[in-house]
Nucleic acid binder design. Sequence first.
DNA 1: CCAAAAGTGTTCCGCGTACACCCATGT
DNA 2: ACATGGGTGTACGCGGAACACTTTTGG
Lengths: 248, 248
Amino acid sequence: MSPYDPSAFPPFAVTVDLVVLTVRRHALCALVVRRGEQPFQGRWALPGGFVRDEEDLAAAAARELSEETGLCAHDPGVPGVGNGAHLEQLATYGDPKRDPRMRVVSVAHLVLAPDLPAPRAGGDANSARWAPVDELLEAGEQASAGLAFDHARILADGVERARSKIEYSSLATAFCPPEFTVGELRRVYEAVWGVALDPRNFHRKVTGTPGFLVPAGGTTTRQGGRPAQLFRAGGATLLNPPMLRPEV
Amino acid sequence: MSPYDPSAFPPFAVTVDLVVLTVRRHALCALVVRRGEQPFQGRWALPGGFVRDEEDLAAAAARELSEETGLCAHDPGVPGVGNGAHLEQLATYGDPKRDPRMRVVSVAHLVLAPDLPAPRAGGDANSARWAPVDELLEAGEQASAGLAFDHARILADGVERARSKIEYSSLATAFCPPEFTVGELRRVYEAVWGVALDPRNFHRKVTGTPGFLVPAGGTTTRQGGRPAQLFRAGGATLLNPPMLRPEV
DNA sequence: CCAAAAGTGTTCCGCGTACACCCATGT
DNA sequence: ACATGGGTGTACGCGGAACACTTTTGG
């Protein structure tokens, strides 16, 4: 670290922004809130807020998440059990011009959550909603139609992280309710990757990977057809060999 | 983002810390500098420094790198060609107690560089050196013997990132000089992963992956034995299928 | 009976692994 | 001659891809 002079460093505002992803109706969706003030008033943005004094970055992200959704996320490194949602740091964005008002460095976090009831608008947001990420990212192509600030870029990075991480980890279960079927888990992969997977091979693959799924004991027919076994997420976090994303 | 009140956010100091890795004498080494002042005076630390006003995070990392090593890194997103070194953002560390003096958020960056002459001590560092990461991380086990601040943790995260990224990307070439042999590239993998690889299969694998290596035209005997073809890094960045790290 | 989803069996083939073998240089 | 590292050929086997087939529910 450089020489320390209490008056020699420029002060920064530090925020956390959240990329909260879920799967609804076979589509990967992100949580966005409507901005109530300038700049970008009326535009959609990722939820987030300032990091408080004496508050860790992950704690700030968990607090904002809970304020916006009522969700209690579980960062595997922070105590406090959640309802299955997964939280991890994504990346940090610090372009001097990213906020026209002042110098803001934002530490983006990624949250993977099971399908939730409609979000409750909280704090300064006029409203909040789940929007398909395809819509949000397409809108970002035309200037001044997409997300506020550099949030389209942050969202794209978060989506890419989620897409690659479910390949080699068991994180896809974070999109599922506590008990789920193999078919439901497959539809998560299909929604996140935007591809169709062979149900037979998928079934063999996930049930054959030790520690990925553990039988929960019951069955369900909520998807129609023959009753399917219910599973819970197993203890394994790394999948070896990984799930293979089909070629483009 | 939360309601904006210029007086309502706590001011943070924002720094960049650098995990600069290279391969020297068959060992993965990191650049460390000796601290010249309190706290942790005399202890080794990762190079780094304050982000300046109007300076992007990646630019700050590149500036610190150049000040400490003379290296001109190439972030594939920042203009300005370097000498082959690779720079990417690693993660951000913001525990309120990580610096006893004040609230500091540090955006760590990872640099992969070819073997370099002895580093020149710059700025406030009494001295600088390349140290095998195994030594640095083992020393961290005993309290007050390892790196300053939370730098052991940052280093461990950087090493883990490098180890996993050379699996599925062509980043291992960033540890090599502009022209290198297949054997030299193999010794990079062996040093970073700490394993022995079969030279025959490795050769077939890397020369058979399109875009990974392009023949540079000449040969060399600098490693002894039969002359080896020289290669340059090809355009491909993602390896498909990936290099497989042998089981533990 | 039929549709729909769950689950099993089987065949094929690419690719990773292991290892035998040959090649071209320095000493 | 021989040691050293470079490079090719080949046989084996695991695991992914494709797909036929059976099972168990709801309508």
